[in-house]
Amino acid sequence: MIEIRFHGRGGQGAVTASRLIAEAVAKEGKYAQAIPMYGTERRGAPVTAYVRIDYRPIRRRDLVHEPDIVIVIDPILSRKPSVAAGLKSGGLLLLNYPTPPEEVEIGGDFMVSTVDATTIALETLGRPITNTAVLGAFSRVTGITKLKSLEEAILKRFPGEIGKRNVEALRRAYEEVHLPKPAKGPLRPREEEPPHVTGYGVLKSVADWRVFRPVVDLEKCVGCRLCWIYCPETAISLVDEKPIIDYDKCKGCGICVHECPVKAIEFVRESV
């Protein structure tokens, strides 16, 4: 039995990715279980999903605690060593990460492979939904499921143009993935930091929820306060009638960018 754990954020498609793998391997005559871990997650919040794959029906219904493979589809979660918690010795850590595995800071007795899925997704889909790109990398690196089975599963679920673009993302990642190297980074997972809980609410920083960061041009700002009114996280305070963003509270939802009547707020992609 092969056990996989996915990390991502609500909206990036970790749950869908887990189901696509299950559908693809089922086409190849294998058995699978795709388990989403739902709590009160929503768009942007870190989420976890699991997949089990076997040659016979899968009966155990507990969660996956010692995965053979960990797949992280979010580039900022990919920086957290805790995503590798419980990963089996000799296992594989597949990260959505812009640089080759040698530059990954997470280390341990497992292999690490990287793919710049966010860039691929932005260029093929026009939005940072990274699941299908990461699946292309998964197929190439693990060989657990054929690219064709994944393509069929994607086109069945997303007929038409969206499906085609996702298949494009899948194929590009298949070609562009950096093949596994031993994980030699200095950072080790700490077991006390469960990977699926990375902070929520006013007491903890939600900075790593963001893909884009709102940046205010105070010269352009006319002090209308609309951003301050609309911010759902009260991340904006007014200093001398001008907005100051508390980036520990900002989840990068982009509402302020949308509401600003003079386009004084720019949405800048977070650097990884």
């Binding site: 189901r19 299950a22 089922a26 058995y31 279980q33 795709a34 388990i35 989403p36 219904r61």
Partner: peptide
């Protein structure tokens, strides 16, 4: 049948 454990888990 058990919610979550089966309701949202996909299998053949």
């Amino acid at each position: 049948y058990d919610g979550y454990i089966l309701s949202y888990t996909a299998e053949p």
